[in-house]
Design a protein around this nucleic acid. Structure first.
Lengths: 207, 207
DNA sequence: CTATGTGAATTTATTCACAGCA
DNA sequence: TGCTGTGAATAAATTCACATAG
């Protein structure tokens, strides 16, 4: 193994590998070849081997990859080993779904705080989390929360992002349908499910 | 303009361009340069010009692009011009959020049917849509619905996809956290928000 | 003089083919 | 022999630079 800068495309694929490896682990599978993993994931075996080769010799030739070891290594690279505390801003329909989404826990994420600006929502209890007023965002730093999800209406997204940056947030998952500007040191990943649906008709047979 | 195969990357960006162009249009803006659009979107101007050049000469040199015309052209390429009827399978937390998501209407999508397997949910009315039993999926073809969203638990995703393919569905937006196998003529786009969150810690400053 | 449109150059990512290890 | 790991080949996407049109 030699040093390589890991490409963003590889980083994008790692969570997908991890997802199915966790499932395999739950099913008691201890080892898997790149071929089998590839057909499970719907990708090419050499893509998987290439991706893995960027950061280590994980496999055993003639055998395959050890599932548990691979999980450990991928988690380490993605920095998913511990628990990642996440704050949510905006507890509307989407925010509620985000809070209820069972997939996060699997990767060590826990939504430990929720904020909204509507007086009617503040104080309400959702599971273990009590909705706080957005003015309390500045408590995030001292509470050791470095990642936040934005699920507010478009017009409030930029000001929410600004407040989060002021509160020391280092990574933002943006569900609002717009581009937000942040300092370079802050990483933003925007998810707009309408954007994905919008490219589906292009691929449909002619009509 | 010459013929080029439009790359998937370009197709992925078109809905993002469209999103902000629609906002500009609502704000009454009639024309915009690639530079201004680029800074609005957080991308490079030449990327925008290159993308647009793949399918037409939309701009006016020295002036910029006509917003309304650009919207019309992008919609035409993405086949978003009319109304796209969408069926939803799985009306849990995520399914409810999908139904309530205001972003779809903007691109001409309308969720006109919803299905669930839980007896307690079947028959319930959500807005204009009455939840139907999944056994009624086979009515989709005659109802002229060609696109469906899957928001069922992982273990039910593949069988749901199979049923949708049998029902003549041509495009699937898969919210379930797994790969699903379908015939080549059917297009699947998988959205797993946990996958996006999972690569965020990688980009955070070292800890 | 401004801003588009596009070949050419560069960079990045994917695919291949096979050497090398268990 | 089976499957990984990886240089080399190929393909694809991005960036540049500038000719061209309004």
């Amino acid at each position: 193994m030699r040093y390589h800068k890991i490409s963003d495309e590889t980083i994008r694929r790692l969570p997908v590998y991890l997802r199915d490896l966790l499932t395999l682990s739950e099913q008691g599978r201890s080892s898997i070849s790149s071929n089998d993993l590839a057909s499970l994931l719907g990708v090419n075996p050499w893509q998987i081997r290439k991706d893995f080769s960027y950061f280590g010799d994980f496999g055993t030739r003639g055998v395959g990859y050890d599932v548990e070891n691979l999980i450990r290594q991928i988690k380490k690279i993605l920095r998913l080993s511990g628990v990642n505390k996440v704050a949510l801003v905006g507890v509307g329909n989407l925010g509620m779904a985000v809070m209820a989404y069972p997939g996060f826990k699997r990767y060590g994420f826990e939504i430990v705080a929720a904020f909204d600006s509507a007086a009617g929502k503040v104080g309400k209890q959702i599971g273990d989390v009590r909705i706080e007023d957005v003015v309390a965002l500045n408590t995030l730093q001292r509470r050791n929360i470095h990642v936040a999800a934005i699920a507010v209406p478009r017009d409030a997204a930029q000001e929410t992002a600004d407040a989060l940056v002021d509160a020391g947030i280092k990574g933002i998952l943006n569900f609002s349908p717009c581009y937000i500007t942040v300092p370079k040191k802050v990483k933003v990943i925007t998810i707009d499910i309408a954007m994905d649906l919008a490219r589906l008709p292009y691929y449909l047979p002619g009509n």
